[in-house]
Design a protein around this nucleic acid. Structure first.
Length: 371
RNA sequence: GCGAAUAUGGUGAAGUGGUUAACACAUCGGAUUGUGGCUCCGACAUGCGUGGGUUCGACUCCCACUAUUCGCC
C-alpha cells in the first residue's frame, strides 16, 4: 500500500490541518514528527524505545546506506525493516541533500551529480534513477525524489535553473519507480522566490506524486524568510496529499509550519542536541552542561512524562554528559524526541478545537521565559 | 648534614633581556534544523616560588631564602 493521506479537519483560524497517513505499517495521525535514523539507526535508540516514545515514521538515508553497507546487503537482509528490526514505516531521503551538504561536489550536470565520497574520497556519480533504484532495494515505505538543495542565498537565475532541473529529475525518478508498495514524494524547491516556489509546486504536482515535500529551507535564511518559503509552497499544494517540511525540527518552526499547512517533519535536531548536552523543554532550550545544574535534582522538564524525566535528574544527566558517557546522550535523545512527538500531539488536539493560534501564544510565552 | 636539579594559570607544559606569556587538557559560556564527525566557536595567568640586586627595562642575568625531587653521608 502506498502512503495515503486523509485530511480530517482544518483549523478555522489558520491553515493547520489534522489528518491521518495510511502506511504499510499502520495509520498515523498528523501533524507528526519523524526522527532521523540516517544509518538505519536513530542514534543510540532501539526500535522498542522509539515505539515507547510514540514515534511513527522514521527516516533513513539513501546516500549513507548506499555507501555503507550497500543496498544489496540490505536487500539480502530482507529490506530495511528487517535489517534494522523496525516494524514501523520508514521514509528514505534520496541522498540529494547529502550530495550537496557533505560530499565534495565535483560537478552537477543534467545527468546527475558527480562528487567525492566523504568516507574515502572515491569519485561517485548519483543520478535520479539510481537514487530511486537504491530506495527500491532498501524497500522503504516512502521514497523521496532526488533533488538539488541549493545553498542560501543564490541568484534568481541559479535558482530558476536548479528548480527546473530538479523537476526534470523528479520526472526521471518517477519513471523508473516500480515498487508498488512504496510511495514516492516530490520535492518543492525555489528558495525565497515566490514565483519559483509556485512554479515548482504546480509543476511537481502535475507529475502526481503520493505526497509533497518542501525542501531548501533552514539553509541559513532568517526565520521570516523561511516561513514565507513554506507559505509560498503549501499554498500551491493539493489538500488531499500530505505535506512534508524537510529538515525542520525547531519547536517554534514546527508550530509556525503547522499553522501554514505542513503535516510532517523530520529533523536531526533532537538527537544532535541530545548528544551535545542540550534538552528541549517547555521553558526553552536547556544546556545541561551549565554549572547551575550541578546540584539540581529535578527532572529535565517537570512538565514531561517521558522515561528520562520519570527516572533521572538534571544533575545525573549533567554528570553523564560531562564525563562523555553515552547514556547521557541516550537519555536526552529519548527526552528530546518525546518532546517533539508530544508537541505535534498537542498541535493535533489544538487543531481539532480550532485553537492552534492560541496554542502558539501559550507555547511561546513559556518557551521564551526560561527557567 | 652535604651535593645537584627544578620552581610559569586548576593540571601538563612552551618560552624570550624589551609591545597582548605559546599550546593542550580541565573549567565556564555559546552554536547545532532532509546527521561523516565523541563536532564547531568563544572566554580563561595584571603575572612566571619568596625577598633583594644588576639594568633604561627581567618572567628571562646575579645573590639569599623557601619548597620539591634525586644522589651521598
Amino acid at each position: 500500500m502506498k502512503a495515503i493521506y486523509e485530511l480530517i479537519y482544518k483549523d478555522k483560524n489558520s491553515n493547520a490541518r489534522y489528518g491521518k497517513i495510511h502506511t504499510n505499517y499502520g495509520i498515523y495521525e498528523t501533524p507528526m514528527f519523524m526522527p532521523v535514523g540516517t544509518l538505519a539507526t536513530v542514534k543510540t535508540l532501539t526500535p522498542e524505545e522509539l515505539k515507547e516514545i510514540g514515534c511513527g515514521i522514521i527516516l533513513a538515508n539513501t546516500y549513507h546506506l548506499w555507501l555503507r553497507p550497500g543496498e544489496d546487503i540490505i536487500a539480502k537482509a530482507g529490506g530495511l525493516h528487517k535489517f534494522m528490526n523496525y516494524d514501523g514505516p520508514i521514509l528514505t531521503d534520496s541522498g540529494g541533500f547529502q550530495v550537496f551538504s557533505l560530499a565534495k561536489l565535483k560537478d552537477i550536470s543534467e545527468e546527475g551529480v558527480k562528487f567525492k565520497s566523504h568516507l574515502d574520497g572515491s569519485e561517485l556519480f548519483l543520478t535520479p534513477e539510481l537514487s530511486i533504484q537504491i530506495q527500491n532495494k532498501l524497500d522503504s515505505d516512502i521514497a523521496m525524489s532526488f533533488d538539488e538543495c541549493p545553498p542560501y542565498p543564490v541568484t534568481y537565475e541559479y535558482m530558476k535553473n536548479s528548480v527546473e532541473r530538479t523537476l526534470r529529475w523528479a520526472k526521471r525518478g518517477k519513471d523508473v519507480h516500480t515498487n508498488e508498495k512504496q510511495a514516492l514524494f516530490g520535492i518543492v524547491q525555489g528558495g525565497e522566490f515566490e514565483d519559483l516556489r509556485r512554479w515548482s509546486a504546480l509543476e511537481t504536482v502535475k507529475l502526481d506524486f503520493d505526497g509533497y515535500a518542501i525542501g531548501g529551507t533552514s539553509v541559513g535564511e532568517d526565520k521570516e524568510t523561511m516561513y514565507k518559503m513554506i507559505e509560498y509552497s503549501t499554498s500551491y499544494l493539493p489538500e488531499d496529499k500530505v505535506r512534508y517540511l524537510m529538515g525542520v525540527g525547531d519547536p517554534i518552526d514546527i508550530i509556525e509550519a503547522v499553522i501554514r499547512g505542513v503535516d510532517i517533519f523530520d529533523c536531526v535536531l533532537p538527537t544532535r542536541l541530545a548528544r551535545h548536552g542540550n534538552a528541549l523543554t517547555t521553558y526553552g532550550k536547556m544546556n545541561i552542561k551549565n554549572a547551575q545544574y550541578k546540584e539540581d535534582f529535578k527532572p529535565i522538564d517537570e512538565n514531561c512524562d517521558c522515561y528520562t524525566c520519570k527516572h533521572y535528574t538534571r544533575a545525573y544527566i549533567r554528570h553523564l554528559i560531562t564525563c562523555d558517557e553515552s547514556l547521557g546522550g541516550r537519555l536526552l535523545s529519548i527526552h528530546n524526541i518525546h518532546f517533539l512527538v508530544k508537541l505535534t500531539e498537542d498541535l493535533r488536539s489544538a487543531i481539532k478545537e480550532d485553537k492552534v493560534i492560541e496554542y502558539r501564544e501559550k507555547f511561546l510565552k513559556n518557551y521564551q521565559n526560561k527557567e
